[in-house]
Nucleic acid binder design. Sequence first.
DNA 1: AAAAACAACTTGTATATACAAGATAAATAT
DNA 2: ATATTTATCTTGTATATACAAGTTGTTTTT
Lengths: 238, 238
Amino acid sequence: MSKKETIPLYKKVIDDLKTLIDKGTYKKGELLPSENDLCKTYSTTRVTVRQALTGLMSMGYITRRHGKGSIVSEPKQGLGILSLSGVTAGVGDQTLTTAILQKQAKQSWPLDFFHELNKEELRNGCVFFSRLRHINGTPVLYEETFITNINLPRFTSRNLENCSLFKILKEHYNIEVKEGEQKIWAIHGDKNISKLLDIKTNHPIVHMKRRLQTNINNLNIYSLVYCNTTEYFLQDYF
Amino acid sequence: MSKKETIPLYKKVIDDLKTLIDKGTYKKGELLPSENDLCKTYSTTRVTVRQALTGLMSMGYITRRHGKGSIVSEPKQGLGILSLSGVTAGVGDQTLTTAILQKQAKQSWPLDFFHELNKEELRNGCVFFSRLRHINGTPVLYEETFITNINLPRFTSRNLENCSLFKILKEHYNIEVKEGEQKIWAIHGDKNISKLLDIKTNHPIVHMKRRLQTNINNLNIYSLVYCNTTEYFLQDYF
DNA sequence: AAAAACAACTTGTATATACAAGATAAATAT
DNA sequence: ATATTTATCTTGTATATACAAGTTGTTTTT
């Protein structure tokens, strides 16, 4: 039952350093321990340590300077456009709450679904849920998410508040987002969206259609996003 | 005068494979030669070949499957939101023209510049230019670009039409974009923007503020983007 | 005092090798 | 015929090592 999976050393190094960066032990602009120091810490060689650092770099956690070291970058949360920042401060200082409008439930794909689906996905159906995110009490972002139904144990009974979808997928099912695409429009919200976001109908909002591919074959995450960017904006690091 | 720089082997492998993918020799969904084949081709070892493949992967050119091989992905153009797609087809089928509204010229940074600048950048000043991109004759995207002035030879006299900024930087100055951030809003265009994009003033448009860091220290590319997404949309791969 | 050389750090590139583990098709056993 | 095993591909992880080259502070020379 218990997956006695041994996680690779380089992944452990990534996780450790990521945690220390997120915790603030290594702050923005500071240098990580040198590659040789990390080699000693983990009793390994530079090839493995560099594999970890390369991973952290492509995740945007660090930059590297020849002859200098690995420099901690701005802490990034999420992948692509997942983070929402206020004009004055980062998300950390804001009160971000998430309301589940429709709890995740198995269903078949909508007939007019916005993205092409393969046979396997169509056969499996999907899990759908919708969330409304508030910052400091104001509704800012409405999101509808469709996940290919591959029978994740107990997934439909989990609590998906507080942006924890990706965390849950990673920690409980070892699912990670590998790549993705997103399409962006500026639109005027229709009646429903405007009501949800508490804005006038001619108010401009950002609309996105996203598709995220995971390390599991045929497990894609699709989402429709509607965001009121009057007081906040969408931020994207790459 | 001639830079007798020896380019690293792994970079040559990346460039070669990238060219072959772009040319269509390796098509989407196909497998690249195996790591051991590439080792033979380049008379090197797997560590070096894998360094190249890891690079191609983080650039989005390929995905890799354990036990299977390196699979060619959808060819991606540019980095982050740089590509503009129509609803019906990719950019390739569209007629994309670029008009230079203000030719690139050295100047000092605007007093109310949207991003923090360091001392070095302030001292150097910037090169500014603005472009208006049309798809099938319709103005769709207006972009103002600020590049830190580091005296690139002949840069101010080059032709920046046809999205070739990044190509020029890469080919003539060996400058590559390393990372970046972008902030996104939906707004109603002001008089100027609306006139440029030929839309009504209450029309929703996507507004972005972008900052791209390059492999050259203190050389950043800042841009302000305004996009009419009525008929087209902004697309982003990661 | 200023410039040049040096030493000691750092990361970058590269070779050579080994075994683990996923994918696939052929050979074998049922 | 249908499973099962096996062989042989593939990529994934890892060790050990070497030298090149950028960065920085110290020492030496001028």
